[in-house]
Write a protein that binds this DNA or RNA. Structure first.
Lengths: 208, 208
DNA sequence: AAACAACCTGAGTTCAGTTCAGTTTGACTG
DNA sequence: CAGTCAAACTGAACTGAACTCAGGTTGTTT
């Protein structure tokens, strides 16, 4: 499965779309979306601010694109990590580990996604923005279903006690993504340790 | 312990500060902060938009005030709920239940708090905004410490296995607050059921 | 080398948030 | 009960970042 990439080979050779997304991920990820001037992104790429509108309809359209790409990647990574597992508890562990097997850019993208999640709730006025929003929303539901289905499989096999799989799935997912609110690569605790701690928590939550 | 109230008796009798906060909580909670025009809040209160600046230095100052008040309330409620408990697992359960014993307005305030948490990360230019931001940040740390301390007490009493109490506390807190991202009073699952599910999850995560 | 699409720009517009320069309201004082 | 003062308020003007417009440039293709 091809992982969703910021740099899209579908674009023309002169296209700066990829560069804009990379720059936007850096700025939105470090200072936050609202705190970042759209013109700063243009400066970083080395083009005038109006040139941005050749690639994105608006600043929000760029943000929504980043969010959709990250959601697509998360979903793909979940599928990839769990496809060969048959034993429920191992499948659960693999899914958690996959969620934390990310690069620094992907950490920023997760942070952007979490910080702006509420943007997906209300319709957008422009067409292209709305398309990205709806796509992102569907991916959110898909990721939620990934977890719900994993839990239901384990429950029906008798490996986990039977509980409301949907609510439990949201709780597990909520705990995992909450890490991106506070984790910084420069922090005291390495990500591997956090991953192990969360893995243990999830297993106890679900399988005991 | 007096719970932090939106309507502050310290204000003069003619003051509309409380009414503004109530209106802002409604609008920010339903449509989101960015999606809400500051003038809509004024309309709802029944004053001109410039009158808002008599009470708040800016739209952001109002938001930060709402966030601080909600954090204060959360902290107070945690303290209130756990002060009489001596048995660690019961104390843990009481803390989780307290986190979900909220009114509809408080749910909106939690939603606003969660959606705009990243605002607390970067300094504000104006003095009064920065004061509120720093106060809110300290309350976040206080709430984190509430959980960390509860976990450490339980560990040192031998009631919970010893783990990194800080990271575990953040995980527990992250799971609890993540509920406010998706829960709606109109939804299919009643809050009491969610509360019970999370309570069980937290106990298994921490005490097993 | 002509044609065309992709890519880019400076000047101007918009709109929500904010400031300014006062005016009104009502409680309290002498 | 007239005068005073601070709290509360207002319409008009300002600001700055997102965005639009009306074209200009670049590189590729035939």
């Amino acid at each position: 499965m091809a992982r969703a990439r910021i740099v899209d080979p579908e674009q023309g050779p002169r296209s700066k779309r990829g560069a804009i997304l990379v720059a936007a991920v850096e700025r939105f990820g470090e200072d936050g979306y609202e705190n970042t001037k759209w013109s700063e992104v243009a400066d970083r790429v080395g083009i005038g601010q109006t040139a941005l509108y050749h690639y994105f309809e608006s600043k929000a359209h760029c943000l929504l694109t980043i969010m959709r790409l990250e959601l697509q990647r998360s979903h793909d990574q979940f599928v990839e990590a769990t496809k060969d597992e048959t034993e429920p508890v191992e499948e659960l562990r693999a899914a958690v580990r996959a969620a934390f097997a990310v690069t620094e850019q992907e950490i920023r993208q997760m942070r952007i996604l979490q910080a702006n999640m509420s943007l997906l709730a209300t319709p957008r006025k422009s067409k292209r923005e709305e398309t990205e929003r709806v796509a992102a929303r569907q991916l959110v539901q898909m990721v939620e279903r990934d977890w719900t289905n994993l839990l239901m499989r384990g429950m029906s096999k008798g490996a986990y006690p039977v509980r409301d799989a949907h609510t439990l799935g949201l709780a597990v997912l909520g705990m995992i993504v909450s890490v991106w609110r506070w984790y910084r690569p420069s922090g005291a605790i390495p990500l591997s340790e956090i991953s192990e701690m969360i893995e243990g928590c999830v297993v106890r939550m679900v399988a005991e």
